[in-house]
Nucleic acid binder design. Structure first.
Length: 137
DNA sequence: AGCCATGCACCG
DNA sequence: CGGTGCATGGCT
């Protein structure tokens, strides 16, 4: 039961917009969240480091964080996968490219990507949906 | 809901 | 001092 999900990168995800944080937003969809370990909701901003292996066998460390300060006086309530700068830059990923995450039987996680064709541009602005897909459950 | 942006801390 | 990541708020 390999569980695979993917996301089409946004400009902000890759750092192209100047945001000094490369990382992607994870939708609160049970199928997607099910891919990641469960983070405690009673703690503020719980995080967990995850290791992913790429095609060459190299290991990458990403951080899965639940920014939930909404329940602690703030305004946030969202999940993010950060610390992806080395992987993004190392592979020269750009907006529109697809990041693929897989969890294999036994618990091993792997990352891959698929280079994209031209992203959808409308009125000079990039319009994307959430970009997330469930490849296999 | 999802993407964009930023002040500040930390580190080489 | 420049790059990176944290945490947080803003905009659409």
């Amino acid at each position: 039961m390999t569980h695979a999900i993917s996301k089409v990168l946004s400009p902000n995800d890759t750092g192209e917009t100047g945001a000094h944080q490369a990382g992607i937003l994870v939708p609160k969809d049970s199928e997607i969240l099910g891919f990641f370990p469960t983070l405690p909701a009673d703690v503020k901003n719980p995080r967990m480091h995850l290791y992913f292996r790429d095609d060459e066998g190299a290991q990458w460390e990403f951080a899965f964080i639940y920014y939930n300060n909404r329940f602690f006086g703030g305004t946030r309530n969202e999940y993010r996968l950060t610390r992806m700068t080395p992987y993004i830059n190392g592979n020269g990923l750009k907006a529109g490219d697809e990041l693929i995450l897989e969890r294999h039987p036994g618990g091993a996680r792997t990352v891959t990507f698929r280079r994209s064709r031209a992203p959808v541009v409308e009125e000079g602005v990039l319009r994307l949906g959430s970009g997330w897909k469930i490849v296999a459950a």
